[in-house]
Amino acid sequence: MPGIVHDNVLTVPSAPPIETRITRLRNFWSDYCRSPIAVVALVVILVLLFVSFGAPLVSPQDPYDMAALDWLDAFLRPGDIGSGGYVHILGTDNAGRDMLSAIFYGLQTSFIIGLSAGALALLIGVTIGLCAAYFRGWVETVLMRIVDLQLSMPAILLALVLVAVLGQGVPQIIGALVVAQYAYFARTTHGAATVERGKDYIEAAQSTPLPTSRVLFAHLLPNVLPPLIVVATVQVASAIALEATLSFLGVGLPLTEPSLGSLISNGFKYIHSDRYWLSIYPGVFLMVTVVAINLVGDQVRTVLDPRNAR
């Protein structure tokens, strides 16, 4: 992917400034801030993380507490006041659940699934990619062939089948998403690590009596990290979207454990009866979350791209 096109001007490098980790981080941050949209996206994500994980504090109602639900409150329009005496800003659903609260809690489930699936897939994928690039030979052939094969299958199909096999529930969904997504990390790690492996510092590290695991994770890994950060953000977003899709199709989470997907799925049943708020609002939150994460990932990619270096 080409970035911004520069003129082919030959510049003579001046003495490089001394770089510490802190200046590097500061440079990264100031580069990142050059896109106002990306900064807004980051703020949006932080706010969403706060309202979802702080859901018990910020939401007007506990949507899991069946005792607090009142059938008389069902299908209140956005802005109506229910029996609880407060305004249901986004209305209520068929069980009298406050939509705003349900969305905050659902967002929490979506985040938990997206983040843990992303982290686990990262862990497994990176290990496989590093091993393939480091050991070469038949290890590389077998591992990467499997990865290639998996990458040629759409993640949605793979996840669909796995969820069907594993059953419904949060851990099952996370498992299915990890299996569907680790290949992206393995591919990226393998590509970057193959390049790094040929460099002198790895040879130097190998010539010392350091254990292989240390060479792999302490020397090789930090240098293949930048592209992985980008893949990780994109994969978290796609994990959240995939989970929502699975729940929407009815094979994901049941409504007793609401994620954004199951909320939308529930609302979809009432789409013809002019009760738009049941499905539109969770969908808006889902869209904003996914797009914001992708925007952040895009900007991180731009900043880390050596072609765009200052």
Partner: peptide, 15 residues
């Protein structure tokens, strides 16, 4: 294109 990429298909369909 970013929207087409990242917004889940089923939700756009619903809209």
């Amino acid at each position: 294109s970013v929207l087409g990429f990242s917004v889940p298909t089923f939700w756009i369909g619903m809209l």
